[in-house]
Design a protein around this nucleic acid. Structure first.
Length: 268
DNA sequence: ACACTAACCTGCAAGC
DNA sequence: TGCTTGCAGGTTAGTG
């Protein structure tokens, strides 16, 4: 269920429930995720205490006594913390047991991933772009990095090597709020429009993280499914409905193998 | 260096 | 009712 706000919410929930907990047992029920989970992770994690949690892009980092557990939720991943014992569900692939509770990674499509890192110098982390809510994502960042980029603006802002955490929903939403047509070439967008776009990206993410906070209460529940769709979305999933801004008809097109929702009237 | 595709999976809803 | 099709919140490796 994860775009950046979901991951941030998940990370904060884990912090609440698992900080300073000692991992007593590790169980891999299905190692075939995006990358096969190596059995050696079991003894590497065992007996370690979780010192802190952090997030980089859509990766959740469990910072341990020695090394880090890094988890990505892919398209359909979800982490639950429950009392122990709990009846397991289909697609519960990876389990951590603590003295009085357990953590389950459930991921039907198995696009998620799990790694043990000795340190944070890892290929997948090193290739990530800036955090959208950090100072590095300043008003000129997108403008500067988009010069000579002929690809469309939507794929540009969804590129994790440019800026992390902007998934399909928030790419559509922030482009709509900025009044930018998603088909526009990244190099053809002015500095002024990029300043607006970066602000809209931050706004939409901050707002969603705040909304994710309400999800937090459900976090420990067995049936706790994040209420992601409670967002009020302006264009995403609203094909053929009317635009809140201009009453135009919202269209769905395919860009880079993904659905794009936009309003052809007010996104130019 | 850049742009774009195929690929990794399951589940669900819609259409026939 | 069952079958087929299309679609889903991500991201990498590979190709040209």
């Amino acid at each position: 269920m994860p775009e950046l706000p979901e991951v941030e919410t998940t990370k904060n929930g884990l912090k609440k429930l698992l900080l300073n907990k000692k991992i007593l047992k590790v169980e891999i029920r299905n190692p075939n995720l995006r990358w096969r989970v190596d059995d050696s992770i079991i003894f590497k994690l065992q007996s370690q205490t979780i010192q802190s949690f952090s997030r980089r892009g859509k990766y959740i980092l469990f910072n341990l006594d020695r090394g880090h557990l890094m988890i990505h939720l892919g398209m359909s991943g979800n982490i639950n913390v429950t009392d122990c014992p709990t009846s397991l569900e289909k697609h519960d692939h990876f389990l951590l047991y603590f003295n009085d509770r357990m953590m389950r990674l459930n991921d039907p499509r198995r696009f998620g991933s799990i790694f043990f890192l000795e340190d944070l110098n890892h290929k997948l982390l090193n290739s990530l772009g800036v955090e959208p809510l950090s100072e590095d994502f300043h008003s000129n960042y997108l403008y500067i990095n988009s010069r000579k980029k002929s690809r469309n603006i939507k794929s540009f802002i969804m590129d994790g090597k440019v800026v992390v955490g902007v998934g399909n929903i928030y790419a559509c939403e922030s482009l709509h709020k900025s009044g930018i047509n998603p088909k526009t070439k990244a190099c053809n967008i002015s500095r002024e429009r990029y300043q607006n776009l970066s602000k809209q990206i931050q706004n939409v993410l901050r707002k969603a993280i705040k909304a994710g906070g309400t999800t937090l209460q459900d976090f420990a529940k067995v049936d706790g499914n994040p209420g992601y769709f409670s967002q009020e979305l302006s264009v995403y999933g609203r094909e053929n409905e009317s635009c809140y801004k201009c009453n135009g008809k919202i269209r769905r097109i395919i860009q880079n193998q993904r659905s794009t929702f936009y309003c052809p009237i007010c996104q130019k």
